[in-house]
């Protein structure tokens, strides 16, 4: 099949497009590993605060969860932005929507991220 190389200049949207693809490759081990461990192997019926505390006291799972939060949520919110672009054709409106989504992403990420970092620090302090 005949193909033609087209040079596309780097801008915010091409970086976002690539981000979806690079993050996708990282998300496979992160997300599938999380789902297989938590939902399939352990199951929600064995989970309580003690289980979560034990899990988060391992630096490995703490780092794992921080990576999961950082990559999966950013991927998902940028995906939502991508979907909304199909519906919002006015560039000014779309810019406002993007900014709102960015603030939403930042707020939830900080809320969850602080909990992940502090949960273990609070426990270490109580030891």
């Amino acid at each position: 099949m005949a193909t033609r190389e087209v040079k596309i200049s780097q801008n915010y949207e091409t970086i976002a497009w690539k981000w979806m693809r690079y993050s996708a490759i990282l998300l496979i081990p992160l997300v599938f590993g999380h789902v297989l461990m938590q939902d399939v192997l352990v199951g929600v019926y064995q989970m309580d605060s003690a289980y979560v505390a034990k899990r988060l006291s391992s630096w490995f799972f703490q780092a794992y969860d921080i990576a999961l939060l950082g990559f999966a949520f950013a991927h998902g919110v940028n995906g939502l932005r991508q979907v909304l672009r199909d519906f919002i054709h006015n560039p000014k409106v779309f810019r406002v929507v993007s900014i709102v989504l960015f603030i939403f992403w930042l707020a939830i990420t900080i809320y969850g991220g602080v909990a992940l970092v502090m949960a273990t620090q609070a426990r270490l302090a109580s030891l």
Binding site: S49, I108, G112, V114, A115, L116, M118
Partner: peptide, 8 residues
């Protein structure tokens, strides 16, 4: 994310 953050 929100409900797990309630852990803290």
């Amino acid at each position: 994310i929100v409900d797990m953050a309630w852990f803290y």
